[in-house]
Design a protein around this nucleic acid. Structure first.
Length: 465
RNA sequence: GGUCCCUUCGUCUAGCGGUCAGGACAUCGGCCUUUCACGUCGGUAACGCGGGUUCGAUUCCCGCAGGGAUCACCA
């Protein structure tokens, strides 16, 4: 049994963004599907740009999405000794060499080469250098062998490069710290990765890394590169296109399962299916159906999915969430109507939890905030009699259930000869101050008799005589 | 510029030689209706171009065009 081992390796220089989340998700799904291991590794070799705040933000976002890992987080910054010894191993074997060229010199030569139409690759000046002084700063470069390097990408198919296109890349900086392309190989190899699933932008790094694996006598893992995510204008997804941070979506009232479902379907498909729970994804996800081309992030479809999950979600759980969203808006729910009832009345008409919270606010308000236009439109002198008839019948109810309320309205209708379209609007205004709300029957039921009647009696004053 | 990758409705995509090119979001109509939604029925809408291969190409091959990625002592 060959155990699948995959990893997600973000660099902690910011929050977890949509693209990274999808890469993490794909790795997670594969690991769970194959019953392999999912490792989280923090790529913080760039000490200057890495922060603990970012690490925390990434961990929090993964937790929210439900992407738990089996090993880690492993910090590369704690493994410098290992990297250094591996660099030495290559130097001793003659597969890497010291380079005394300064960044400034290299930059100059690059520019000169570009200007004369040549390739901006390292000219191997120091490969042929005779002296190797220890008292001068030097970086270590990997000596790229001649030939061709090819690999079979699990998503894109065979990809090959001529080694001469590759630079003798620096694997250790002059300050002694290792560079990305080197540590990623050491870690993926030492941690036993069997598949490296990552963003498309790493395709060009892959041949260099393969050469490194070979130079260090490591087994080369399989690779799979997922296409990037674009904004509506087909450019790389960025702040301009809206929220890119996973956690921003929670703030905006999205459910994690909606984001997971959306991200999974962005670039992957399973016939005509659109709705997938995490459990289904684990069973159905596969690399064979991951597309090769970049995809545009479509917020509207995500919104539709979110509405779907709100519509079909567990009311008790949504009630708990709603309480949080209301709390963030300064609305206290204790002592108010039953939250599950509130959720039930709003569930079908909310696309986000924020929307639900906004729609639920009136249930918990001490006094109704009347919208002037709603009052003038619905609480007309002609409507007053009908309103009072409704109020009379509702007052007489012992059982304030939906059905009983409906019966009360029916009585009022036959008594006044008015249709529900005439009777309901002013009641709605009295209850929530506007012309839009859940069904008035539901609102009355959720509010309960006492609160309802209080509001209805207050509402009598709305009618201009 | 070099190298590498990509190309089906507006968007996400199904398709793996013969389909009226399917689904979903969005959009446009109808229905439902106490408001707003939801739901429901239906419509509009796509194979980048040019060569091949083949009885037959969206599908296979080669060009072209257009996108994108990458060419750091960043990751």
């Amino acid at each position: 049994m060959s155990q699948l081992r995959v990893r997600f390796a973000p660099s902690p220089t910011g929050y977890l963004h949509i693209g990274g989340a999808r890469t993490a998700l794909f790795n997670f799904l594969l690991a769970r599907k194959e019953q392999g291991n999912f490792i989280l590794r923090i790529e913080d070799t760039d000490v200057a740009r890495s922060t603990q705040t970012s690490v925390d933000a990434i961990l929090q976002a993964m937790d929210w999405l439900g992407l738990n890992y089996d090993e880690g987080p492993i910090y590369q910054s704690e493994r410098f000794d290992l990297y250094r010894s591996k660099v030495q191993e290559l130097v001793v074997a003659g597969k890497a060499y010291r380079c005394y060229c300064t960044p400034e010199e290299l930059e100059q030569r690059r520019e000169a080469a570009m200007k004369s139409g040549g390739k901006p690759k390292y000219d191997r000046t120091c490969l042929h250098r005779q002296d190797q002084p220890d008292d001068r700063p030097y970086a270590i470069r990997f000596l790229v062998p001649d030939g061709e390097t090819a690999f079979v990408d699990r998503i894109k198919g065979t990809i090959s490069f001529q080694n001469e296109e590759l630079d003798d890349l620096i694997i250790q900086r002059s300050d002694g710290t290792p560079t990305y392309n080197f540590v990623v190989v050491i870690d993926d190899a030492e941690m036993g990765m069997t598949l490296v699933l990552r963003g498309d932008d790493h395709v060009n790094n892959t041949p260099r890394q393969i050469l490194l694996y070979q130079a260090l006598s490591y087994a080369v893992p399989e690779f799979a590169h997922v296409p990037m995510i674009l904004g509506a204008d087909k450019t790389r997804l960025s702040k301009r296109h809206g929220a890119t941070s996973v956690m921003e979506y929670r703030v905006m009232g999205f459910l994690p399962e909606a984001l997971v479902n959306y991200l999974a379907r962005l670039g992957w498909s399973c016939g005509d299916e659109e709705i997938f729970s995490m459990e289904e994804l684990i069973v159905k996800f596969d690399l064979d159906h991951v597309g090769r081309s970049a995809g545009v992030f479509n917020p509207e479809k995500l919104l539709w999915l979110n509405a779907h999950y709100i519509k079909t979600g567990d009311r008790q759980r949504l009630a708990t969430l709603l309480k949080e969203y209301l709390g963030e808006r300064g609305i206290e729910t204790d002592g108010g109507p039953d939250l599950v009832g509130v959720v039930k009345s709003l569930q079908e008409r909310s696309h986000t939890m924020v929307e639900m919270a906004e729609g639920a606010a009136f249930y918990f308000a001490d006094k109704v905030d009347y919208l002037p236009e709603a009052v003038s439109k619905c609480c007309t002198p002609e409507a007053k009699a009908g309103y009072q008839t409704v109020l009379k019948h509702l007052s007489a109810l012992d059982d304030f259930s939906h059905d009983a309320i409906a019966a009360a309205f029916n009585q009022a209708m036959s008594e006044t000869g008015l249709k529900l379209g005439k009777l309901a609007p002013p009641v709605r205004v009295a209850l929530n101050g506007t012309t839009t709300s859940p069904s008035v029957y539901e609102v009355l039921e959720v509010l309960g008799k006492e609160r309802s009647l209080t509001r209805l009696r207050q509402g009598e004053a709305l009618f201009a005589t």
